[in-house]
Protein backbone atom coordinates (compact mmCIF):
# COMPACT_ATOMS: atom_id res chain seq x y z
CA UNK A 1 0.00 0.00 0.00
CA UNK A 2 2.74 2.44 1.01
CA UNK A 3 4.96 1.64 -1.97
CA UNK A 4 2.07 2.22 -4.30
CA UNK A 5 1.39 5.61 -2.73
CA UNK A 6 5.06 6.51 -2.98
CA UNK A 7 5.39 5.73 -6.64
CA UNK A 8 2.38 7.84 -7.43
CA UNK A 9 3.73 10.82 -5.54
CA UNK A 10 7.17 10.66 -7.18
CA UNK A 11 7.71 13.00 -10.10
CA UNK A 12 8.21 11.28 -13.47
CA UNK A 13 11.86 12.26 -13.95
CA UNK A 14 12.83 10.77 -10.65
CA UNK A 15 11.09 7.53 -11.47
CA UNK A 16 12.62 6.96 -14.89
CA UNK A 17 16.18 6.31 -13.68
CA UNK A 18 15.51 3.47 -11.26
CA UNK A 19 13.06 1.98 -13.74
CA UNK A 20 15.70 1.66 -16.48
CA UNK A 21 18.15 0.25 -13.96
CA UNK A 22 15.52 -2.19 -12.86
CA UNK A 23 15.14 -3.22 -16.46
CA UNK A 24 18.81 -4.07 -16.97
CA UNK A 25 18.86 -5.81 -13.64
CA UNK A 26 15.81 -7.76 -14.64
CA UNK A 27 17.43 -8.74 -17.94
CA UNK A 28 20.56 -9.97 -16.15
CA UNK A 29 18.39 -11.93 -13.83
CA UNK A 30 16.51 -13.51 -16.71
CA UNK A 31 19.71 -14.47 -18.54
CA UNK A 32 20.99 -15.92 -15.29
CA UNK A 33 17.80 -17.88 -14.79
CA UNK A 34 17.85 -19.37 -18.27
CA UNK A 35 21.53 -20.26 -17.75
CA UNK A 36 20.71 -22.09 -14.57
CA UNK A 37 17.75 -23.86 -16.14
CA UNK A 38 19.17 -24.82 -19.50
CA UNK A 39 22.96 -24.82 -19.55
CA UNK A 40 23.82 -25.83 -16.02
CA UNK A 41 22.33 -29.35 -16.17
CA UNK A 42 24.34 -30.11 -19.32
CA UNK A 43 27.52 -28.81 -17.69
CA UNK A 44 26.96 -30.87 -14.56
CA UNK A 45 26.24 -34.07 -16.47
CA UNK A 46 29.21 -33.46 -18.78
CA UNK A 47 31.50 -32.92 -15.83
CA UNK A 48 30.25 -36.11 -14.17
CA UNK A 49 30.82 -38.15 -17.33
CA UNK A 50 34.36 -36.85 -17.67
CA UNK A 51 34.93 -37.67 -14.03
CA UNK A 52 33.72 -41.26 -14.55
CA UNK A 53 35.89 -41.55 -17.66
CA UNK A 54 38.89 -40.26 -15.69
CA UNK A 55 38.25 -42.80 -12.90
CA UNK A 56 37.78 -45.71 -15.29
CA UNK A 57 40.96 -45.00 -17.23
CA UNK A 58 43.21 -43.92 -14.40
CA UNK A 59 44.81 -47.37 -13.87
CA UNK A 60 48.05 -48.27 -15.63
CA UNK A 61 46.46 -51.19 -17.51
CA UNK A 62 43.74 -49.00 -19.11
CA UNK A 63 43.63 -49.34 -22.92
CA UNK A 64 42.20 -45.88 -23.49
CA UNK A 65 43.69 -42.56 -22.38
CA UNK A 66 42.09 -40.61 -19.57
CA UNK A 67 40.74 -37.10 -20.29
CA UNK A 68 43.73 -35.49 -18.62
CA UNK A 69 46.07 -37.64 -20.76
CA UNK A 70 44.18 -36.60 -23.87
CA UNK A 71 44.66 -32.94 -23.07
CA UNK A 72 48.36 -33.22 -22.28
CA UNK A 73 49.01 -35.45 -25.32
CA UNK A 74 47.20 -33.22 -27.76
CA UNK A 75 47.99 -29.84 -26.27
CA UNK A 76 50.03 -28.85 -29.31
CA UNK A 77 47.11 -29.67 -31.60
CA UNK A 78 44.63 -27.83 -29.42
CA UNK A 79 46.54 -24.57 -29.23
CA UNK A 80 47.62 -24.62 -32.91
CA UNK A 81 44.57 -25.43 -34.94
CA UNK A 82 45.91 -23.77 -38.10
CA UNK A 83 49.57 -24.84 -38.50
CA UNK A 84 50.64 -26.11 -41.90
CA UNK A 85 53.66 -28.39 -42.32
CA UNK A 86 52.67 -29.41 -45.83
CA UNK A 87 51.07 -32.63 -47.02
CA UNK A 88 48.54 -34.06 -44.61
CA UNK A 89 50.40 -32.65 -41.60
CA UNK A 90 48.17 -29.65 -41.03
CA UNK A 91 46.22 -28.34 -38.03
CA UNK A 92 42.83 -29.62 -36.94
CA UNK A 93 41.18 -26.44 -38.24
CA UNK A 94 42.40 -27.18 -41.77
CA UNK A 95 41.36 -30.82 -41.49
CA UNK A 96 37.85 -29.83 -40.47
CA UNK A 97 37.65 -27.16 -43.17
CA UNK A 98 38.73 -29.65 -45.84
CA UNK A 99 35.97 -32.02 -44.73
CA UNK A 100 33.46 -29.18 -44.58
CA UNK A 101 34.37 -28.16 -48.11
CA UNK A 102 33.57 -31.64 -49.44
CA UNK A 103 30.33 -31.65 -47.50
CA UNK A 104 29.45 -28.23 -48.86
CA UNK A 105 29.83 -29.37 -52.47
CA UNK A 106 28.09 -32.71 -52.04
CA UNK A 107 25.32 -31.33 -49.87
CA UNK A 108 24.59 -28.35 -52.13
CA UNK A 109 24.23 -30.65 -55.11
CA UNK A 110 22.00 -32.92 -53.05
CA UNK A 111 19.80 -29.96 -52.04
CA UNK A 112 19.31 -28.83 -55.64
CA UNK A 113 18.72 -32.30 -57.07
CA UNK A 114 16.79 -33.51 -54.04
CA UNK A 115 14.28 -30.66 -53.95
CA UNK A 116 13.77 -30.82 -57.73
CA UNK A 117 13.19 -34.58 -57.70
CA UNK A 118 11.03 -34.28 -54.60
CA UNK A 119 8.81 -31.70 -56.27
CA UNK A 120 8.54 -33.89 -59.36
CA UNK A 121 7.61 -36.96 -57.35
CA UNK A 122 5.22 -34.96 -55.18
CA UNK A 123 3.46 -33.33 -58.12
CA UNK A 124 3.17 -36.15 -60.58
CA UNK A 125 1.57 -39.43 -59.65
CA UNK A 126 3.19 -41.04 -62.66
CA UNK A 127 6.66 -39.91 -61.59
CA UNK A 128 5.97 -41.15 -58.09
CA UNK A 129 4.96 -44.60 -59.28
CA UNK A 130 8.02 -44.77 -61.50
CA UNK A 131 10.63 -43.34 -59.19
CA UNK A 132 9.51 -44.09 -55.66
CA UNK A 133 10.35 -47.84 -55.70
CA UNK A 134 13.80 -47.04 -57.06
CA UNK A 135 14.36 -44.42 -54.36
CA UNK A 136 13.17 -46.80 -51.67
CA UNK A 137 15.71 -49.42 -52.76
CA UNK A 138 18.63 -47.08 -53.36
CA UNK A 139 18.25 -45.20 -50.10
CA UNK A 140 18.97 -48.34 -48.10
CA UNK A 141 22.41 -48.72 -49.71
CA UNK A 142 24.98 -47.72 -47.06
CA UNK A 143 26.98 -44.60 -48.03
CA UNK A 144 30.33 -46.38 -48.11
CA UNK A 145 29.01 -49.00 -50.51
CA UNK A 146 28.82 -46.23 -53.10
CA UNK A 147 32.50 -45.38 -52.70
CA UNK A 148 34.07 -48.11 -54.86
CA UNK A 149 31.56 -47.44 -57.64
CA UNK A 150 32.21 -43.71 -57.55
CA UNK A 151 35.99 -44.26 -57.42
CA UNK A 152 35.66 -46.42 -60.50
CA UNK A 153 33.56 -43.80 -62.23
CA UNK A 154 35.49 -40.63 -61.30
CA UNK A 155 39.02 -42.15 -61.06
CA UNK A 156 39.77 -39.57 -58.39
CA UNK A 157 39.31 -39.52 -54.65
CA UNK A 158 37.92 -36.02 -54.12
CA UNK A 159 34.93 -36.17 -56.51
CA UNK A 160 34.23 -39.66 -55.20
CA UNK A 161 33.95 -38.39 -51.64
CA UNK A 162 31.71 -35.57 -52.82
CA UNK A 163 29.54 -38.06 -54.65
CA UNK A 164 29.20 -40.17 -51.51
CA UNK A 165 28.00 -37.10 -49.60
CA UNK A 166 25.59 -36.28 -52.39
CA UNK A 167 24.08 -39.75 -52.57
CA UNK A 168 23.81 -39.98 -48.78
CA UNK A 169 22.10 -36.64 -48.26
CA UNK A 170 19.74 -36.74 -51.21
CA UNK A 171 17.24 -39.40 -50.04
CA UNK A 172 15.76 -37.70 -47.00
CA UNK A 173 15.57 -34.46 -49.00
CA UNK A 174 13.69 -36.13 -51.88
CA UNK A 175 11.34 -38.04 -49.63
CA UNK A 176 10.49 -35.14 -47.32
CA UNK A 177 10.03 -32.70 -50.19
CA UNK A 178 7.68 -35.05 -51.99
CA UNK A 179 5.65 -35.63 -48.85
CA UNK A 180 5.49 -31.88 -48.29
CA UNK A 181 4.32 -31.22 -51.82
CA UNK A 182 1.81 -34.03 -51.64
CA UNK A 183 0.41 -32.63 -48.41
CA UNK A 184 -0.27 -29.12 -49.68
CA UNK A 185 -3.85 -28.52 -48.53
CA UNK A 186 -6.48 -28.75 -51.25
CA UNK A 187 -7.60 -25.25 -50.23
CA UNK A 188 -4.31 -23.69 -51.30
CA UNK A 189 -4.49 -25.51 -54.62
CA UNK A 190 -8.02 -24.20 -55.11
CA UNK A 191 -6.95 -20.67 -54.25
CA UNK A 192 -4.18 -20.95 -56.82
CA UNK A 193 -6.66 -22.20 -59.40
CA UNK A 194 -9.16 -19.43 -58.76
CA UNK A 195 -6.36 -16.84 -59.00
CA UNK A 196 -5.18 -18.64 -62.19
CA UNK A 197 -1.58 -18.71 -60.99
CA UNK A 198 0.73 -20.11 -63.64
CA UNK A 199 3.16 -22.93 -62.96
CA UNK A 200 6.03 -20.72 -61.90
CA UNK A 201 3.87 -18.54 -59.64
CA UNK A 202 2.33 -21.61 -58.06
CA UNK A 203 5.77 -23.09 -57.47
CA UNK A 204 7.27 -20.00 -55.81
CA UNK A 205 4.24 -18.53 -54.05
CA UNK A 206 2.34 -21.59 -52.91
CA UNK A 207 4.24 -24.84 -53.26
CA UNK A 208 7.63 -23.91 -51.81
CA UNK A 209 6.30 -22.02 -48.77
CA UNK A 210 3.66 -24.66 -48.09
CA UNK A 211 6.18 -27.50 -48.29
CA UNK A 212 8.99 -25.59 -46.57
CA UNK A 213 8.60 -27.17 -43.13
CA UNK A 214 8.84 -30.63 -44.67
CA UNK A 215 11.70 -29.66 -46.94
CA UNK A 216 13.69 -28.32 -44.01
CA UNK A 217 13.13 -31.50 -42.05
CA UNK A 218 14.71 -33.31 -44.98
CA UNK A 219 17.56 -30.82 -45.19
CA UNK A 220 18.28 -31.23 -41.52
CA UNK A 221 18.39 -35.02 -41.68
CA UNK A 222 20.48 -34.71 -44.84
CA UNK A 223 23.17 -32.53 -43.29
CA UNK A 224 23.48 -34.92 -40.36
CA UNK A 225 23.87 -37.90 -42.66
CA UNK A 226 26.45 -36.15 -44.84
CA UNK A 227 28.58 -35.34 -41.85
CA UNK A 228 28.33 -38.97 -40.77
CA UNK A 229 29.33 -40.15 -44.21
CA UNK A 230 32.25 -37.79 -44.80
CA UNK A 231 34.25 -39.08 -41.85
CA UNK A 232 33.84 -42.66 -43.04
CA UNK A 233 34.56 -41.80 -46.68
CA UNK A 234 37.69 -39.82 -45.85
CA UNK A 235 39.09 -42.71 -43.84
CA UNK A 236 39.18 -44.64 -47.08
CA UNK A 237 40.19 -41.99 -49.60
CA UNK A 238 42.98 -40.33 -47.62
CA UNK A 239 44.25 -36.78 -48.07
CA UNK A 240 43.54 -33.82 -45.81
CA UNK A 241 40.31 -34.22 -43.87
CA UNK A 242 39.15 -35.12 -40.40
CA UNK A 243 38.30 -38.70 -41.39
CA UNK A 244 41.75 -39.48 -42.66
CA UNK A 245 43.25 -37.70 -39.67
CA UNK A 246 41.50 -40.23 -37.44
CA UNK A 247 42.66 -43.14 -39.55
CA UNK A 248 46.21 -41.78 -39.59
CA UNK A 249 46.20 -41.37 -35.82
CA UNK A 250 44.98 -44.93 -35.41
CA UNK A 251 47.83 -46.21 -37.58
CA UNK A 252 50.29 -44.22 -35.47
CA UNK A 253 48.60 -45.48 -32.25
CA UNK A 254 47.88 -41.92 -31.13
CA UNK A 255 44.61 -42.63 -29.40
CA UNK A 256 44.52 -39.20 -27.74
CA UNK A 257 44.48 -37.55 -31.17
CA UNK A 258 41.51 -39.69 -32.11
CA UNK A 259 39.62 -38.60 -29.01
CA UNK A 260 40.32 -34.96 -29.81
CA UNK A 261 39.19 -35.49 -33.41
CA UNK A 262 35.95 -37.10 -32.22
CA UNK A 263 35.24 -34.06 -30.08
CA UNK A 264 35.76 -31.83 -33.12
CA UNK A 265 33.54 -34.03 -35.28
CA UNK A 266 30.79 -34.02 -32.69
CA UNK A 267 30.88 -30.28 -32.15
CA UNK A 268 30.94 -29.47 -35.86
CA UNK A 269 28.07 -31.90 -36.55
CA UNK A 270 26.09 -30.26 -33.77
CA UNK A 271 26.78 -26.80 -35.18
CA UNK A 272 25.79 -27.87 -38.71
CA UNK A 273 22.50 -29.18 -37.44
CA UNK A 274 21.86 -25.99 -35.47
CA UNK A 275 22.77 -23.91 -38.52
CA UNK A 276 20.19 -25.62 -40.74
CA UNK A 277 17.68 -25.40 -37.89
CA UNK A 278 18.33 -21.68 -37.61
CA UNK A 279 17.80 -21.11 -41.34
CA UNK A 280 14.69 -23.25 -41.19
CA UNK A 281 13.27 -21.08 -38.43
CA UNK A 282 14.02 -17.95 -40.41
CA UNK A 283 12.40 -19.23 -43.58
CA UNK A 284 9.41 -21.11 -42.25
CA UNK A 285 8.39 -18.50 -39.71
CA UNK A 286 4.64 -18.10 -40.07
CA UNK A 287 4.07 -20.99 -42.45
CA UNK A 288 2.29 -23.05 -39.85
CA UNK A 289 -1.32 -22.17 -39.27
Amino acid sequence: MTTKANSIVKPLSAVSMPVSMDKTLFRFKRVGESFVQKVLPALIVGFLLILIWELLTSSQSATLPSPSRVVTDTWELIINPFYNNGGTDVGMGWQILASLERVAYGYSLAVIAGISLGVLVGQSTWAMRGLDPIFQILRTVPPLAWLPISLAAFQDSNPSAIFVIFITAIWPIIINTSVGVRNIPEDYRNVAKVLSLNGYEYFTKVMLPAAAPYIFTGLRIGIGLSWLAIVAAEMLIGGVGIGFFIWDAWNASMISDIVLALVYVGVVGFLLDKFIGFISNLVTRGTSN
Binding site: N190, V191, V194, L195, T284, T287, N289
Partner: peptide
Protein backbone atom coordinates in the same frame (compact mmCIF):
# COMPACT_ATOMS: atom_id res chain seq x y z
CA UNK B 1 -11.98 -23.70 -65.87
CA UNK B 2 -11.43 -21.64 -62.73
CA UNK B 3 -10.79 -17.97 -63.24
CA UNK B 4 -10.69 -14.61 -61.50
CA UNK B 5 -14.09 -13.61 -62.93
CA UNK B 6 -15.63 -16.11 -60.48
CA UNK B 7 -13.78 -15.59 -57.23
CA UNK B 8 -14.53 -17.83 -54.30
CA UNK B 9 -14.67 -17.16 -50.57
CA UNK B 10 -13.91 -20.50 -48.99
CA UNK B 11 -15.47 -21.68 -45.79
CA UNK B 12 -12.19 -21.87 -43.93
CA UNK B 13 -10.87 -18.59 -45.37
CA UNK B 14 -7.92 -20.34 -47.12
CA UNK B 15 -5.55 -17.46 -46.66
CA UNK B 16 -1.93 -18.35 -47.29
CA UNK B 17 -0.43 -18.38 -43.78
CA UNK B 18 3.04 -17.29 -44.86
CA UNK B 19 1.75 -14.07 -46.38
CA UNK B 20 0.53 -11.02 -44.49
CA UNK B 21 -3.01 -9.74 -44.84
CA UNK B 22 -1.81 -7.19 -47.39
CA UNK B 23 0.21 -9.77 -49.33
CA UNK B 24 -2.69 -12.20 -49.48
CA UNK B 25 -4.86 -9.63 -51.19
CA UNK B 26 -1.90 -8.39 -53.23
CA UNK B 27 -1.36 -11.86 -54.67
CA UNK B 28 -4.87 -11.76 -56.12
Amino acid sequence: SPGPDRSVVFQNHSLLPWLTVYENVALA
